[in-house]
Amino acid sequence: MSMDTHSRELSGAGLGLRRGLVAEWRGLTKDTPDFIEVTPENWMDLGGRFAKDLRYFTDRYPTVCHGLSLNLGGPVPLDAEFIKRLGHFFDEHGIVCFSEHLSYCGDNGHLYDLIPLPFTDEAISHTSERIRQVQDMLGRRIAVENVSYYAEPQGQMAELEFLNAILSEADCELLLDVNNVYVNSVNHGYDPEQFIAALPSDRIAYLHVAGHLREEPDLIIDTHGDRVIDPVWALLAYTYTRHGNRPTLLERDFNLPPLNELLSELAIIRTHQTAGGHNEHKSYIAAGSAVRLCQCHS
């Protein structure tokens, strides 16, 4: 368990660290992101150039981790050895917050992508129990992200009810992905503002925003491969109005543009944060307090 006595604040506009951005980003001294997000599975236990790059960035930026392979809702037992290694990684790099996906990523083998859970009571108790186990093993609270989904396996309730039940039963934080709310509102026909308004403010650790791909009128794929579109900016602004100013991370995984373009999107985030942020919510993270690491208060 981390015994780090430093405390750090997460605020402003962050950018996901990607290998393809490193060369240009390394020399950046102006208009820098306020924090970064690292996918631990893509960086952990590497040597050479990768290790040096990672160290360069985690030394200079407050860093959150966003995992992919924990398989929180999965059908096989949690990988205790992997969770232990994640804990070491967090300690080594002073990770201020850890988030994972509210989904599963494989059967008895990893598929490295997100499969939607059925919205059932059984899935709620199964997944909540596992989130609690992970929190116990890591000695810190984690945040779970609402994922994009392109099909809805037969269930008993709506996504919103499912998500809120998990937050409550697992006693965990929420990484609210505003783009995913938009994507799902189109794919599954619901009102994105109503969805966001019904989420518990005090559980929101930070936000994600990203671009996507419109395949068909009723199918958006969450590619993280393009600019954020205007309706998603509007939904982000609404989120700040409803839940206060929250640290927000821009995700971009494909079709990486020159860094400047991403920095200009961070500027848009900050503008919305200022406009909607009369109600100041910073995610204040005291790394020494083991129980509540992704804590938000106004």
Binding site: G73, P75, Y104, D107, L111, I115, A151, P153, Q154, G155
Partner: peptide
């Protein structure tokens, strides 16, 4: 249901998707 979904993703020609998934 999870194994059924994953099997169908791996091999859609030989596995039916779970209920609710077209």
């Amino acid at each position: 249901a999870q194994y059924a979904f994953a099997n169908a993703i791996r091999d859609p020609g030989n596995h039916l998707p779970p209920a609710g998934v077209s």
